[in-house]
Structure formats: C-alpha cells, structure tokens
Design a protein around this nucleic acid. Sequence first.
RNA 1: CGGGAUGUAGCGCAGCCCGGUAGCGCGCUUCGUUCGGGACGAAGAGGCCGCGAGUUCGAAUCUCGCCAUCCCGACCA
Length: 490
Amino acid sequence: MAKDFPTRAENYAQWYNDLVIKADLADNSAVRGCMVIKPYGYAIWEKIQATLDKMFKDTGHSNAYFPLFIPKSFFSKEANHVEGFAKECAVVTHYRLKKSDDGKSIVVDEDAKLEEELIVRPTSETIIWDTYRTWIQSYRDLPLLINQWANVVRWEMRTRLFLRTAEFLWQEGHTAHATKDEAIEETGKILNIYANFAENWMAVPVIKGVKSPNERFAGAVETYCIEALMQDGKALQAGTSHFLGQNFAKAFDVKFLSKENKLDYVWATSWGVSTRLMGALIMAHSDDNGLVLPPKLAPIQVVIVPIYKKAEQLAEISEKAEIIKKALVAKGISVKYDDRDTQKPGWKFAEYEFKGVPVRIAIGPRDIENGTVEVARRDTLEKETYQMTDIDIKIENLLVQIQDNIYKKAFSFRAENTFHVDTWDEFKDQIEKGGFVFAHWDGTSETEQAIKEETKATIRAIPLNNPQEEGKCVYSGKPSKEKVIFAKSY
RNA sequence: CGGGAUGUAGCGCAGCCCGGUAGCGCGCUUCGUUCGGGACGAAGAGGCCGCGAGUUCGAAUCUCGCCAUCCCGACCA
C-alpha cells in the first residue's frame, strides 16, 4: 500500500484526486478550474494524440487550426447551439490594460472596449462553418474532412482534474459532405475509430450507442457516443460523434452545386475526444497502489532498477542493464534505466509502481552471478525471475499480456456491473448501487427527466444494434421496444 | 449561485477556548553508515501564522470586514 494514499473503498473521489496529483500527472493551477498538465501526464496525452492523429489521417482527414476567439454574433446563428453553451462561455470585452490612477496596479482600460465581444471557443462549429462557406462551392470540394487539435474553454461551476476543467485540450473534427448518407457514414466511421482506440490502446471496453434527445449535443440531429464504466460504478462518456444534418450549413449558408447542377446545403458532422480520456484511463485500471497504465500508452513501458552496494557492482549491473535496454529499444519498447544514486531501490520500486510503469526489471549482484533478472509486472504485482536468454522477446510478450490482461479485467468488471431490471423498485435500488442498468424506457423526454430528478441517473446510451424486445417503461409503464442504458455519470 | 468547512515552512498538520520568544511529521541541505520493497544517526536551512482594520503594554490566538481554496448541491465533455 502506498504511503498516505486512500483506498478506493475508503474514498473513491479522494483516491482519484490524490492519484492524479501524486502520480505527477497534473496539478491545480493558479487559475481556478484550470489545470497544469505535468510532463508525465502530458506524455500520456501525447501518445493518445499521436495514435488518434494517425488514425484520422489514415482515414483521409487533415489537420488545420481555427481561431481561439469567436465573434459573439456567430453564436446566435444556430438557436439550439447557443442555448447549449451560452451559460458557460468566457467573453473577451476589452483589448488593453493600463496603469491604475495611483500607478500601483494594472486595470482594464475602459476606453479599449471591443466593438463586438469575442467568445473564447467552447467548441468551434460556428467559426469553422463560417469559414467553410468560403471553401465550398461545388460537389468537387466535398467531402471536406478537417480535424483540429486545440484547447477550449467551458466555464464550469465545479471542476475536477481531467474529468472536468474550465480549459481542456481536445481534438474536434468537422466534416462537410454532399449527402446525408455520407455524413452519417462518417459519424459511424469516427465512432469506430474511437471505440477501437479505447479498447485496443486504452484497454477500456466501451459501449457504442446513440444519445437520447436530452443528452444530445446542442445543434446536432443525432449524437453517437462511446460510454465506459468506471470502477465506482459511474459511467463516463469517452467520446462523441455528431451527425449535424444541415443545421450549421443553413445557419452559415454553406451551399454547393451538385453534379446535377442543383444548389443544396451541405451535410455535416463533428466529433471529439478530450483530455477527459486521461480521467477514463486513470479510473478504469488503477488500484490502491497507484496508477496502472496499459503498455501501449505508458510513457515508460519498462524501468530497470539496479541494486548494488559498491561502485564496481554498479558498473557490472549497468553493463547488463544497457544490453537489455538496447535490445528492448530495438523492439520499439520505451525503457528507462534508473541508475540514480540519490534514491534507494525500495524507493524507486514504490515510485514506479505508483506511476503505473507496466514492467520493472531489477538487477542485483545475485542476478549477475546467476545470469538472471527479476521481473515485476504492475497489473498483477507478481515478481518472477527470468533467465537472460531472449529477454527482449520475453519482455515484449509480457507487455502484450499485460495490455490484454488489463482489458480483460476491465471487461469482466463491466460485465459484473451491468444489470437488467424490469421494475421501478429494482431500478432505484440498482442505480443506487451503481453500474450500467438496462431498462425499458418509453422514449419520452419527460420520463427521462423525471428519472433523472428522482435517481440522478441519465440515459447514457441507446446501444447500436440494440436487441428489440417488447416491454414496459420502467418508470411510466408505457410500451417500449428496447432497453436503454441508465447510469449515474461523470 | 445556495449549504458546510478550511487558510500557520515546499507538503500534511498542531497551537487558537484560556493573548506573552511559532512547533511537529514528511520533504530539503551536509557528513557518515546503509542499499533484493518507501533505511538510520548526527548536524543544519527554511515563516508578513490568507489580507486589512480594530481591541490590548502585547494578537497566529479576541472582534469586524474582505479575499482565497476545498467539500456537498443546481449546470456540464
């Protein structure tokens, strides 16, 4: 057990907060609600970025960059969109500071008021669609497949590192298509990329689904999502892909001439994942000993710790460590050989364990004598002595096993915490206990709202390819054709 | 924006009732012994006690005001 660190059972929220800070992932900043992402945390984000970026490019998307500031007037063009974001926008009103009259401080220069206020982007649909109008004239300009990596600001009341911060990093894809079908296909393609990334890189099993009208993105016709289940039984939306119909094209007058020489509005999608994925990654796998990272996203996959008394021993151990490191690096594995003399081996063990490094190799005098190394895996905390022969292949295989094991563990957890209920009493009871709760729903917004008010649970998703079955709404008793997933969520 | 709590060394806290030289643990620095799961000893460094007024011979401590942060709610990726 790590020092001064609560267990999940004692206090899950505290466990998460402490973990993020003590594992050196991020910190609160001088700015309320905004975080500092520290090098170790940012290294994970960079791996997430690199992987997704390649996936986007492999499917024909290009990166671009649009302004941080959006003229206020743009927001009023799409009515639903305004309503969705108005309450959490940061607004720039002035462009100059000056010395105060007493010369002691800096104040806003009231003479430097902006003609039109600028909104710090909470998302970029408006500025992007205003730009797309000038880019798109013909069906030959389509599809337009753009992604941007950016920061956005949503002025949240209550914030939590990675899960909800006032400023966060994300990618937002914005595409334009000639046909409705093509746009819908795009949202599905992206949803599959997200699900593939979540499951095969983050080792987090997700459910692909569609959002209920209440949970839909402001301005979208349909919102698709991937939902993950955290260890405390709460759901976390890990990514969204929106079919925007012609809403933004109409609002920003983006038309194109088709092959048949007919003028029509283009069809749109937008989709994104954010630094919130870091929260999902942390909460999905970590334990009471600290962070557990899937090998594919761990900044350090293997750490080598020497155990020695005298300088001559260290020299011998270092020689062996460097051989191992070289062999592993040749296989594309990221290795850190920590030969710092300033910390003790035990201290290092605890440190790397807490930071979730998947594999630790310890080499001591005994190993030099026997031609072995001690290998410890973070996910199971098991230690084993390996012969040096084919050490690179053994470690490579071990990393694959760990990735696999972490996913399976998360998958069984979800399976054990997924429930089907038919009565309102069962429903309330199970929601209180946590997990994904499948229940019949009459399809109305009013029922969803009422359930939310009474239990704090929302519809997380209506799964894609959901089995159709006749039933009665768990709340209203009205007829229903399928069960949907309810849960409390982040 | 409502309800609750807290601001004292880098971090975590005690001291405050009952005013009188600002303390403990961790961390940090130096030296020595240690080194296969967070070592031990010795010697050090480090404070506008959140900010501003007031009461008092004297305020971390009492009074008033302000500010900030955290937790719990309403809002949300």
